[in-house]
Design a protein around this nucleic acid. Structure first.
Length: 425
RNA sequence: GGUGACGUGGGUGAGUGGCUGAAACCACCGGUUUGCUAAACCGACGUACUCUUAACGGGGUACCGCGGGUUCGAAUCCCGCCGUCACCGCCA
């Protein structure tokens, strides 16, 4: 949620930003509506406050009059207060009304993009921020896509997942399961080495939590919902982990706060069909290690670069070819100010697969969750950032395809202490 | 799931209708004293909204788990919800 004061002070910048984010032209009116509503809110607030002040004053007098036995005067004042009360009740109702409307409108406005975000409406418009400089791996004509390799070596079984649950819920088996667990451990250990605190959060969250990071109200359809208990299955660890600091006022010296967490992620996703969603390309449940940073507004973009370096380091160590994209306005998430996607080249499919998304949300999430730090005598919203480091399913897909040999799948060196084997066959 | 107790500021904890935005103590912060540390003493010490001020600051309103109610007036009384703890039942 954008800060009201920011909108007020930077209206033209907001409008311009919304355009880059492909906010519908006819919806731009919402900004003026918001400001107008807020003007009304202030006025009502002021009026109500002075009414209540008067009431408090009178009440005090009544008490004194009663004590000194001046019943008649007290009675007269009581009537006066009764009239005030009615008026105050009306103002209060209208104030609550205005606030609710304001909130509703504010929730509709996406974050505005950082100045470096390129314009565009679709994935093709994303800017290649860092290309893969050396040649891409070329496999022979008999190279297999990962879903066939999985079948050949018993890495994971999607049909078994259908039996147990439904489509998009892979069952990892044997060395495949071990590989999955090795990757999780490797990613966590790397994050811990880089100074992140490991957390194991709940996999289900309540409505407040989902709203604070921006999943609600607009992306309701993306999450699984447990109706009976009013809980959402998390689509990413970002949601519970960032919310650890909801309604918290930090000391400036606490920043930055760096956390990492492994969780399964659940995505309903309307989804398309065909080759693009085959195998592990798109599933309803996948494992991911997430990194989350809460930082000082002046430092957050520097931190974003460090996060990019961290993720790059992981992919380097796994010896996977990748590129980094700077997402265009139209392809960015509702909540983000700047997002970089990492894509790994999956050599048999000859496709780039998104394995990480690293974003700075600036104060968009912290405003919703009232996450601040002490800045001298006042408080200020912190910047929140997060990134996948990394999403497992597609990493496994790329590893299987890129590392296939007639003897089996070659496990990258860094993982061997975790897997205990060098060849998956 | 059942029964009982309880939910006050960063912490402990006082407060059963007006003098309580809230005692006291601890922690934190500033200062005095001090060779350093410690101790002692003094002072400051919530958040949000709003009005006012060039600014420092000052005024007002709301908030004692959350929501509603009674009352001229509620942390304090009533109702609902949520949560915590204890005991019982069940259980990885």
């Amino acid at each position: 949620m954008l800060e009201l004061n920011f909108i007020r002070a930077n209206k033209s910048r907001v409008l311009q930003g919304l355009k880059i984010k492909n906010f519908p032209q006819e919806g731009l009116q919402v900004i003026d509506d918001i400001l107008k509503l807020d003007d009304g809110r202030k006025e009502t607030q002021t009026n109500l406050d002075s009414l209540l002040a008067e009431r408090n004053q009178l009440s005090k007098s009544i008490g004194n009059l009663m004590k000194s036995g001046q019943k008649a005067e007290a009675e007269a004042m009581r009537e006066k207060v009764a009239a005030l009360k009615e008026e105050a009740a009306q103002l209060e109702e209208s104030l609550n009304d205005t606030k609710a409307q304001l909130e509703e409108l504010l929730l509709k406005v996406p974050n505005i993009p950082h100045e470096s975000v390129p314009p565009g409406t679709q994935p093709e418009d994303n800017e290649v921020y860092k290309a893969w400089e050396t040649t891409l791996p070329e496999l022979g004509p008999d190279a297999l896509p990962h879903w066939e390799l999985a079948q050949k070596y018993g890495v994971f079984d999607l049909e078994l997942g259908v039996k147990l649950t439904g489509s998009g819920f892979p069952v990892y088996r044997g060395k495949g399961a071990k590989l999955e667990r090795a990757l999780i451990s490797f990613f966590l250990d790397e994050a811990i080495k880089a100074g992140f605190e490991e957390v194991i959060p709940p996999l289900m969250v309540n409505e407040d939590t989902a709203r604070a990071t921006g999943q609600l109200p607009d992306k309701e359809g993306q999450m699984y919902f447990v109706e009976r208990d009013n809980l959402y299955l998390i689509p990413t660890a970002e949601v519970p982990v960032t919310n650890i600091y909801r309604d918290v006022i930090l000391d400036e010296s606490d920043l930055p706060i760096k956390m990492t967490g492994y969780t399964p992620c659940f995505r309903r996703e309307a989804g398309s069909y065909g080759a693009h969603v085959r195998g592990l390309n798109r599933v309803h449940q996948f494992d991911k290690v997430e990194i989350v940073v809460l930082d000082h507004p002046d430092k957050s973009y520097e931190t974003l670069q460090q996060m990019l370096a961290h993720v790059s380091g992981l992919l380097d160590k796994l010896e996977l070819p990748y590129r980094i994209l700077r997402l265009c306005g139209g392809d960015m998430s509702f909540t983000s100010a700047l997002t970089f996607d990492f894509e790994v080249f999956s050599a048999a499919q000859k496709r780039w697969l998104e394995v990480s998304s690293v974003s700075n949300f600036e104060t968009f999430q912290s405003n919703r969750m009232k996450l601040r730090y002490r800045d001298g005598k006042s408080t200020r919203l912190v910047h929140t950032l997060n990134g996948s480091a990394l999403a497992l399913a597609r990493i496994v897909a790329a590893l299987l395809e890129n590392n296939q040999t007639p003897e089996g799948i070659v496990i990258p060196k860094v993982l061997r202490t975790y897997t205990g084997f060098e060849l998956l066959n």
